[in-house]
Design a protein around this nucleic acid. Structure first.
Length: 817
RNA sequence: GCCGGGGUGGCGGAAUUGGCAGACGCGCUCGCCUCAAAAGUGAGUGAGGGCAACCUCAUGUGGGUUCAAGUCCCACCCUCGGCACCA
């Protein structure tokens, strides 16, 4: 009697052995195809939760599978170690963010090891290490030199709770909350560094060559928000130009007023003295609105007449200029031409303030008179009241009018994006110092490369004041000008942590390389990332930023690719047993450490993969995990318990061997296909079916044949990516050579996998009436004849002649009466 | 409002190109094992009807195409996620 399956014992043993043997260390080997598998690195919060397991265990299984398929696999791991939680925890507990972070990392390393994943720990990077963030600074300087990093004074999004500015991407939802803490974000005027991601807007819209989920591509496309149209120059009566952006140049003749954003610089110039007080009051109110709350649901449009007029350049019409907060300074030119007949927002505004509504697009059933309209007509139609363009279909009109505007010199084709440049300055301590120096005589200067890294001082006072903590660290702040040697000051902001993660996949190539970002020869071999996995929540943040970085790095000559990650897979989310999001307050959190000590890592890994399809996630089930324990227990016995075979009645050895080999090779087929597509749940189902079959075969003399050995060996190999410890132990105990993880993936014997007899379904009018066993290669004519004779069908036929008999080879015969 | 994903037994979920709906697992029921229990193990398990062989109904709702629909088409409902005064 062999020992029972005891995961605790074998898992620790093999983890130690694998680590000692450096089994998973990736070495460059040009003779083999490489596979760079990457899973999003964790923030070192201090505890590995089930979500981390759900993200990492299946991606580990996939990486292991690729390795057995003959790829030289690199599967690194690291820590996204800068960021606010460390700072907040440090303030609360009065310990240094560095100590807090490092202690957490230490703890999480141990937890990650308990997973039995094939992480190459020799490549680990920790982003708060100066050896890492030195290259953040170096990249910043390269972007600066290339004109892709710039500083500007502008109103920015500010989280009053986190006490820092945020990138547009980190402001969530209609009511504009902080992505981190959910606080309502306000506007603040600050001098900040930005990365010119908008330079790459068009290229970022091109996903060709990327095998990414449709969902992510759509989210990025929407986020970038490209729209084509025209810029048209209107002129105020006093002669100031007002440039507007419109997607509907075909409606230019219907522009009956203009609207400027309240903060538009021209407002002061166009406002007439009698309107001054009202305009100023509205501007003030709009300012407060954006600062206080913007939650009001039914935002009724408001605005104020400036007293000024503009001339519509296409027809010379004199139209009033208003200001209104539905026009945003941050989009387009901050000014619009209002065409109330054909734009619902302008329509509502015109109705409210009694402005003229001029119809210029005629639809099938739309009134030609603006007074009779109930809604703006924004569909396609034919241009009317539009001078030389009368009778032109609107779609064609958009092109023709744009060309005409260019000829007349009053406008041009233009593209606008919703995407804003990436604001990277943060007014917090725990991040990468921005490597810039401000000299009163020489101006803003980059820190020379040889002075990198600009080290984050350990002894800064980092209590949040709304200003950068580094500002109060005089030793850091005051320095000398690298140009004139005179007194100068450093930039005291730190970088958004998304800068760290924008290039971390490159850092793993030659981690903490003191000389360069990474070694080019190694980069040529390993890059780009072949398979990236992680949550979809980063669709318009990290995943957009890292694409931008790669494109910018390509233009700097640092990488040779347009895209950082060729394939992307988004795993779902594990919910609590109550089908709700796991949270401490709900008390529905499951702790992986507990589970590992109770069931073992292999069981936890496999249960997470078995729950549902990986991209779907789903509720935890504390009973369901027992099913995996039973399954692995049965595998254990199947492999190790001596069998005591007896031949059942009618046993034929040849047939039994054929049946066994068929199931073995069909299982190899199924598992291979499913693992290719991340179908872990169906992979496991196939292995369960296989082992159930083996369980039945075990009591027969087939166990004494080589086919049985082949079946057991295949089972262990197919199981190896999913349950690495158990497979290794059984591989070892059955006297096979170390390590199961260095074995090639089993080969399918197609001939053995073929069925020699199939079940043919016999239908009458599409309903199943019988099933017959026939040889797999049966001819159509014979199949039909046998079907007609099948008892279930014969009875229903009752002597009638079928109108039609349909044969689907290998599947069914449908007799139509 | 716009865009995208999803609605299948008591539960989690399967179902290559339209071709046996419910694989696999959980749970449940009845056996075996046991003094008993746990563990293990065998059989059964969509609903309704029938003594039975069998029959009928069933993949969110309503239509349609087809010999055949969870799968394709049209309309709608619910749900999750993203965007939202973007000119």
């Amino acid at each position: 009697m062999a020992e029972r399956y005891n995961p605790q014992e074998i898992e620790k043993k093999w983890q130690a052995r694998w680590e000692a043997d450096k089994l998973y260390n990736a070495e460059m080997d040009p003779s083999r195809p490489k596979h760079y598998a990457l899973t999003m690195y964790p923030y070192p919060s201090g505890d590995l939760h089930i979500g981390h397991w759900y993200a990492m265990a299946p991606s580990d299984a996939r990486a292991r599978y690729m390795r057995m398929r003959g790829y030289n696999v690199m599967f690194p791991m690291g820590f996204d170690a800068f960021g606010l939680p460390a700072e907040n925890a440090a303030i609360k507990r009065k310990i240094h963010p560095y100590s807090w972070t490092m202690a957490n990392i230490e703890r999480m390393r141990g937890q990650l090891r308990s997973m039995g994943a094939m992480f190459d720990w020799d490549r680990e990077v920790v982003t708060c290490d100066p050896r890492y963030y030195k290259w953040n600074q170096w990249l910043f300087l390269r972007l600066y030199e290339a004109g892709l990093a710039y500083k500007t004074f502008a109103p920015v999004d500010w989280c009053p709770n986190c006490n820092t500015s945020l990138a547009r991407e980190q402001v969530i939802g209609e009511d504009r909350r902080c992505e981190r803490c959910g606080t309502l974000v306000i506007k603040k005027d600050l001098d900040q560094w930005l990365f010119r991601i908008t330079n790459y807007a068009d290229e970022l819209l091109d996903f060709s060559g990327l095998d990414w989920p449709e969902r992510v591509k759509v989210m990025q496309t929407n986020w970038i928000g490209r729209s084509e149209g025209a810029e048209v120059r209107f002129t105020t009566e006093a002669g100031y130009p007002i440039v507007v952006f419109t997607t509907r140049p075909d409606t230019l003749w219907g522009a009956t007023f203009m609207v400027l954003a309240p903060e538009h610089p021209l407002v002061e110039k166009v406002t007439t003295p009698p309107q001054q007080a009202q305009v100023a009051a509205y501007q003030e109110q709009a300012r407060r609105m954006s600062e206080i709350e913007r939650q009001a649901k039914d935002k009724e449009k408001t605005g104020v007449f400036t007293g000024g007029f503009a001339i519509n350049p296409v027809n010379g019409a004199r139209i009033p200029i208003w200001i209104a907060d539905y026009v945003l300074m941050s989009y387009g030119t901050g000014a619009i031409m209002a065409v109330p007949a054909h734009d619902q927002r302008d329509f509502e505004f015109a109705r409210k303030y009694g402005l003229k509504i001029q119809v210029v697009i005629q639809g099938e059933n739309t009134p030609a008179n603006g007074e009779e309209m109930e809604l703006a007509f924004d569909a396609e139609g034919v241009m009317i009241n539009s001078g030389p363009f009368n009778g032109t279909p609107s779609a064609e009109g958009i092109r023709k009018v744009t060309a005409w505007l260019e000829e007349q010199g009053i406008g041009k084709f233009a593209v606008n994006y919703r995407l804003r440049d990436w604001l990277i300055s943060r007014q917090r301590y725990w991040g990468t110092p921005i490597p810039m120096i401000y000299c009163p005589t020489c101006g803003a200067l980059p820190v020379p490369d040889q002075d990198l890294p600009v080290v984050l001082p350990q002894d800064a006072e980092f209590l949040p004041t709304g200003e950068s903590p580094l500002k109060y660290h005089l030793g850091f702040r005051y320095t000398t000008c690298p140009q004139c040697g005179g007194p100068a000051e450093r930039d005291t902001d730190t970088m958004d942590t998304f800068v760290d993660s924008s290039w971390y996949q490159y850092a793993y190539i030659t981690p903490y390389d003191p000389e360069r970002l990474f070694e080019p020869a190694a980069g040529d071999y390993w890059l780009p990332v072949d398979q990236y996995t992680g949550g979809v929540e980063h669709a318009t943040m990290h995943l957009l930023y890292t694409r931008f970085f790669t494109k910018a790095m390509r233009d700097l000559g640092l990488v040779k690719y347009d895209e950082p990650m060729l394939k992307l897979f988004n795993q779902g989310i594990i919910l609590g047993e109550d089908n709700e999001k796991m949270s401490k307050s709900r008390g529905n959190v499951v702790d992986p450490d507990d589970l590992v000590s109770r069931y073992g890592a292999d069981v936890v890994r496999m249960f997470l993969m078995f729950l549902s399809s990986w991209n779907q996630g789903g509720p935890w089930n504390s009973r369901g995990i027992e099913g995996i324990t039973r399954f692995l227990g049965r595998v254990w016995e199947l492999v190790l318990e001596p069998a005591n075979p007896t031949a059942p009645a009618g046993y034929h050895s040849d047939q039994a061997v054929r049946d066994l080999r068929r199931v073995t090779h069909q299982t190899i087929q199924r598992v291979t296909r499913d693992l290719e597509d991340f179908g872990f749940n169906t992979t496991i189902a196939a292995l369960m079916e296989f082992s159930n079959m083996l369980g039945r075969a075990r009591s027969t003399p087939v166990v004494e044949t080589p086919a049985w050995q082949e079946a057991i060996e295949s089972l262990l190999l197919l199981l190896a990516p999913l349950a690495p410890h158990l497979s290794e132990e059984l591989w070892h105990q059955t006297g096979r050579p170390y390590s199961v993880h260095q074995q090639p993936w089993p080969q399918v014997d197609n001939a053995a996998a073929v069925e020699d007899e199939i079940t043919l379904v016999v239908q009458i009018n599409g309903k199943v009436r019988d099933r017959i066993q026939v040889p797999a290669g049966i001819a159509e004519q014979e199949a039909k004849e046998r079907a007609l004779e099948a008892p279930g069908a014969h009875k229903m036929l009752d002597g009638k002649t079928p109108r039609q008999v349909i044969y689907v080879p290998g599947k069914l015969v449908n007799i139509v009466l």
